[in-house]
């Protein structure tokens, strides 16, 4: 049961808006967390046998399932020596009263694009290793993300689940034999991973920051920003994803906080998927 996600109209509840800020000034949050504390994360991989890679991630009450199907196809003509991946996301209506059935709306498309950017711009997948015959046949990874339960901040767990599914994905091997593409039975390879991107959602209320907002907090925020980081703490994507002002003076603090939290989330991910770095 949640008050905020069920309300058809999402204008903030005044007493909560004031209260969330008052608590932040005392270093507290309505659910008892510290301002810079993420909710508990749990990651299980290879949960869908029919997918080539899959991961179920929960972050507090938010639950995300990602599955990857690998197909073969023609590369883009401007990138003949690279494999292809696409990211899709759906906000399933069973996840929240505020999600509606139907084709992905702008929120779902934004989620997919943020996850895509984190993976693409960090160059997490070595796409050149996903080529079967240059310019002709490459592996194509379809990364499909489903939000199953929405209790705030679906961005960070979505990136975690996509990367966990990628890291544990078994790509079925294909070979060209006499000009014909054939499946090499029983053989598969790991996704060539170069870095482990994670994202961190940071909310801003006046002069205070918080991470991993709850739905009630999301409604009270002045604005929020999602930052993607690679394993070397480079920033690989940014999305200011709500209206409102983001003070230039706060950016330094935001980047530092994000980088610290990214490391924390990455270590949880690395442990769950058994990736030594």
């Amino acid at each position: 049961m949640s008050l905020s996600t069920k309300s058809p109209k999402t204008s903030p509840i005044k007493i909560m808006q004031n209260r969330i800020y008052e608590l932040l000034k005392q270093g507290k949050r309505i659910d008892g967390r510290a301002p810079h504390e993420v909710r508990p994360v749990s990651i299980s991989t290879s949960v869908i046998e029919k997918a080539d890679g899959s991961a179920m991630v929960s972050m507090g009450g938010t639950k995300i399932l990602t599955g990857i199907k690998v197909e073969t196809g023609t590369p883009y003509s401007d990138r003949p020596n690279e494999g292809v991946f696409t990211v899709n996301a759906e906000l399933l209506p069973l996840a929240s009263a505020s999600f509606e059935p139907g084709p992905p709306d702008e929120r779902a498309v934004e989620l997919a694009r943020i996850v895509d950017r984190c993976i693409r711009e960090s160059r997490a997948i070595d796409l050149e290793k996903l080529v079967i015959t240059e310019g002709e046949k490459v592996y194509m990874l379809y990364i499909d993300i489903y939000v199953l339960d929405y209790d705030g901040n679906y961005f960070d767990p979505a990136v975690l689940s996509a990367v966990a599914a990628l890291a544990t994905c078994k790509i079925p091997r294909y070979e060209m034999r006499n000009g014909k593409l054939e499946r090499v039975e029983g053989e598969s390879m790991k996704t060539p991973i170069r870095t482990i991107p994670v994202s961190v959602m940071i909310g801003v209320i006046q002069d205070r920051l918080l991470v991993d907002p709850s739905p009630m907090e999301e409604r009270a925020l002045d604005t929020s920003v999602i930052l993607g980081y690679d394993s070397d703490s480079n920033i690989v994507s940014i999305q200011k994803n709500t209206p409102g002002l983001l003070s230039l003076n706060m950016m330094e603090q935001i980047i530092e906080l994000g980088s610290k939290k990214a490391e924390e989330l990455r270590s949880i991910l690395v442990e769950a998927v058994g990736l030594g770095s």
Binding site: L3, I13, I15, M16, R19
Partner: peptide
């Protein structure tokens, strides 16, 4: 109500 925390059950 002008002050307090709202919760649901």
């Amino acid at each position: 109500l002008t002050n307090g925390i709202i919760i649901s059950m």
